[in-house]
Design a binder for these strands. Structure first.
Length: 282
DNA sequence: CGCGCCTCCTGTGTGC
DNA sequence: TGCACACAGGAGGCGC
């Protein structure tokens, strides 16, 4: 479940292992992986071959690698996407979608994706900020992020505060896991109406979002299973620090009450029934 | 235009 | 043992 900390960990790995290298060949093994590349898989390979990769960039959960052509290779990991740096002779796994071979021949970059929600595309002229990403808000670590603007926008949303946190046009990078963690820390139930938060509550919630994302980056992200790993195939260890996500029935780390699980948008929300009382209307 | 629901995917776990 | 089904969920797209 890659969210901002997991994607940032991958970005750091790409920066270390592929920045500055020249692509010798790009092999699309599954067309769905490049469905967002309008010109099709053959064009995807053609425009990338021979290009040199620049410094890996990230906004929210999107990644991009600027190219020396002025275009950019844009990627989203979706649910289960992985970028792996592997020896060229390593066996192909069953979920290999795209193989990037380098002119130096020392290792390969592979895009592997079990559930195929992730995808890659080349964004024409997108080296600075790909058009595919321009519609989402800056994430809270972006110098362009404006906390006052976020707080004001959040307090105008006619929806629950968790839905608002997951709205990538309001703040990017937050997914189901870190939304639940930030709400637990802020002692707010996710169905609390966003437009009824006080300015202080909204600022506190943002502070908790930033804190939990930063701590998770330091831990290398959250891994529940083999679906999230860094570019070297290693798991993150933030799962040991989770207070809400996946803890249904376990005692709240703050008050001891059994944590609850609720259905939300065809998925799950975890919260403490005592520390995070639901609003009366829901 | 804002909001919320549906859909795309596949592997794992569970219950009958 | 095998089958059916729930579940995991980011984000585009569409209906209201």
């Amino acid at each position: 479940m890659p969210e901002l900390p997991e994607v940032e960990t991958v970005r750091q790995g790409l920066s270390r292992w592929v920045t500055g290298r020249r692509l010798a060949a790009v092999e699309v093994r599954h067309p769905r992986a490049v469905r967002r590349h309008a010109a099709g898989p053959d064009d995807f390979s053609a425009v990338l071959t021979g290009r040199t990769l620049g410094e890996a960039q990230r906004r929210g959960k999107y990644l991009w690698l600027p190219l020396d052509s002025g275009d950019a290779l844009v990627g989203h990991l979706g649910m289960s996407g992985q970028f792996l740096v592997l020896p060229a002779d390593a066996a192909d796994g069953p979920h290999l979608r795209v193989r990037f071979s380098f002119a130096d021949g020392d290792s390969q970059l592979r895009f592997v994706d079990q559930r195929t929600f992730g995808g890659l595309a080349v964004s024409p002229g997108g080296a600075q900020l790909p058009a595919e990403i321009a519609h989402i808000a800056p994430d809270p670590f972006d110098p362009l992020f404006d906390a006052d603007r976020f707080v004001a926008a959040l307090r105008k949303k006619k929806t629950g505060v968790k839905r608002a946190l997951l709205d990538q046009t309001l703040i990017s990078g937050v997914g189901n896991i870190y939304a639940d963690e930030a709400l637990w820390r802020a002692q707010l139930h996710g169905e609390r109406p966003a437009d009824r938060l006080s300015p202080a509550q909204a600022r506190e919630l943002l502070a908790e979002v930033v804190a939990v994302l930063q701590e998770a980056i330091t831990a290398g992200g959250t891994s529940f299973d083999a679906l999230y790993v860094n570019v070297n195939g290693e798991s993150g260890y933030f799962d040991r620090s989770l207070h809400a996500y996946g803890r249904a029935g376990l005692p709240c780390d703050r008050c001891g009450a059994p944590m609850r699980r609720e259905s939300f948008m065809n998925r799950s929300s975890f919260s403490c029934p005592r520390c995070q009382p639901p609003p009366r209307t829901s």
